[in-house]
Design a protein around this nucleic acid. Structure first.
Lengths: 336, 336
DNA sequence: ATGAAAGCGCTAACAC
DNA sequence: GTGTTAGCGCTTTCAT
């Protein structure tokens, strides 16, 4: 808009060289490697002119010609969810450091929307995809990987699918915090989880079961599963839990934790007086009760940087070599 | 990647027409208006072939040629902030409805970063920008608007700059909740705010002052201002407030509210027993105290849809006409 | 060390 | 109603 943008043609004319030369100088300059054709003197001159004219390369033209957009697409569950919002934030900066950009999309845990978003991003010509798989997204992910697209899975895995991924050691984390509840004297611990089938919640449930079994509490294992975004019957659930003599809750996600804890306080009960509690992810809410809630602090920054690193490795690996696959498992930090 | 993508050339060959024809059919089809050249029969045939070949238009080529990217850039304060994350989420969907995409960037309330992000988005060739101005961003915004870029301001305004904007009636909202605190018997209300100079916090402070003056409480007006992301001395502040006999807090943002409330509870005090409180934006935390906190619920969805609507109006307005300017002021909803 | 030239896939004048 | 054509700005092969 406004006045016509400056192109390499303008620079070429102004500097008395060919457009090809300018192009070379620019890309070498960007990639930091000065090794390549072009004499010192000319290079300097071109750069000076570009700077003076305030040259900004045209992304579309570059993308069209080179087939690369320097953009990676990220499909999250829901960018309004604090956990993912934070990841998004770190990714933004990470990408910038690689001279890349990120475009986000939310699947809303809906496989149809997931597919739509992936296709949208692919149309945009992203160089790679970082995906948080939702329940039912196996098909589209498989297709995408099959089509040779660079894919890195985040936060969750797809069983039976050989793709790079960055996940937390969810089972271990869940086992640890459940164990801690037990050590604090809890005997009748309920786990609150989701009914959807995604690897991380499944692993967390498994960890809970591990810990309960190991402590000889197999009989009081109880996993209550809620549908995503449908927490209508929490109060009914809490009543039933009280009847069953539950003395602690282990919640698979922060959202679930907030939901259950709210309900507990609504009933005039409190933590840790009436119930012990453990969950995943920090919440500002926990500051207020100086005590009682054990939580798993996920290394959000590592999630972002490792995923970014992985997708970059994919993009820069020779397309002839067997595509690389790496499983990165991050360690949780437990906060009491 | 993978196999070569299908182009309009392929379709043209297959359907026995020219590439131009295909291009027309595609764009008309996309824009919904069938009025334009092209016969029914041919159109149908082309569409059929495109569908069979699973044609996906190349965004870069289209953008390069047409100069439009069907992408709008959004610069938020911080996408990890729940208020903005939610707006981002709504915008995503809104944009999709217009057949547009959004790319986000966070300024982190830093004018240098703001400028960098704006330039990045402009380089990407966005058709318009929705901006949440941060303190010190006036210059770059002025330049951008001056360059003829479509800009809509969100959540905050830039004094003296004639640009379209979508904001809340912050002053009125602040006045109302302050008044409510007074009605509940508070006499010594502190306002907790930010030291940075952005229109919405300034307006909220003004509303607080309005209400205090109107109630004859001018003498106890006290605005405590924190630097963004520097809440080190909250506990010192709380002590001083107690010494001054403060009986209620009015907080300019949710972040500030969480911070102050946490501190209150850490001191063994509580709301509404020891202090009354009011703030902006909802927080899951408030569910837990069934009472006491008055807050302004901002219509996040309207923010998103109105801003989107406005930027679309800009984009689609003839470039010859005087650029349109509209100030949209949304009404708050007060929740007790 | 440098330049010429051929497009990438698409759109929009301009013919017919 | 349909086709021809000339690029958009850039990268990259091939000459020189």
């Amino acid at each position: 808009m406004g006045t016509r943008a400056v192109t390499i043609k303008d620079i070429a004319r102004e500097a008395g060289v060919s457009t090809a030369l300018v192009s070379f100088v620019m890309s070498n300059y960007a990639s930091g490697k000065n090794i390549y054709r072009v004499g010192q003197e000319t290079s300097r001159r071109v750069l000076a002119v570009a700077d003076r004219l305030n040259y900004k390369p045209n992304t579309s033209a570059r993308a069209l010609r080179s087939g690369r957009t320097n953009t990676i697409g990220v499909v999250l569950s829901d960018i309004a969810n604090p956990f993912f919002a934070e990841i998004a934030r770190f990714m933004e900066d990470q990408a910038y450091a690689y001279n890349y950009n990120v475009i986000f999309g939310s699947s809303d845990e809906n496989p149809d929307k997931f597919r739509r978003v992936v296709e949208l991003l692919l149309n945009k010509g992203v160089d790679g995809l970082i995906l948080v798989p939702c329940d039912g997204a196996d098909g589209i992910i498989r297709e995408t990987v099959g089509a040779g697209i660079n894919v890195v899975l985040l936060d969750r895995q797809v069983p039976g699918l050989d793709v790079s991924s960055v996940v937390l050691d969810n089972r271990e984390a869940a086992r640890t915090i459940t164990r801690m509840l037990i050590d604090k004297g809890a005997k009748n611990i309920d786990m609150v989880s989701y009914s959807m089938s995604i690897s991380n919640t499944r692993d967390r449930e498994q960890g809970y079961v591990d810990a309960m079994k190991a402590a000889g509490l197999s009989d009081s294992i109880h996993i209550e599963r809620f549908a995503h975004n449908e927490y209508g019957n929490v109060s009914a659930y809490l009543s039933s839990a009280r009847e069953r003599g539950v003395d602690a809750f282990m919640m698979a996600t922060n959202t679930l934790a907030v939901m259950v804890i709210s309900e507990i306080y609504k009933c005039g009960l409190s933590i840790p007086k009436d119930f012990k509690a453990a969950c995943f992810d920090r919440n500002p809410l926990f500051d207020i009760y100086g005590s009682g809630i054990i939580y798993v602090s996920q290394p959000v920054d590592s999630f972002a940087s490792k995923a970014m690193e992985a997708i970059m490795a994919h993009i820069n690996s020779s397309p002839h070599k067997k595509p690389l696959r790496e499983q990165i498992v991050l360690s949780p930090e437990i906060i009491e």
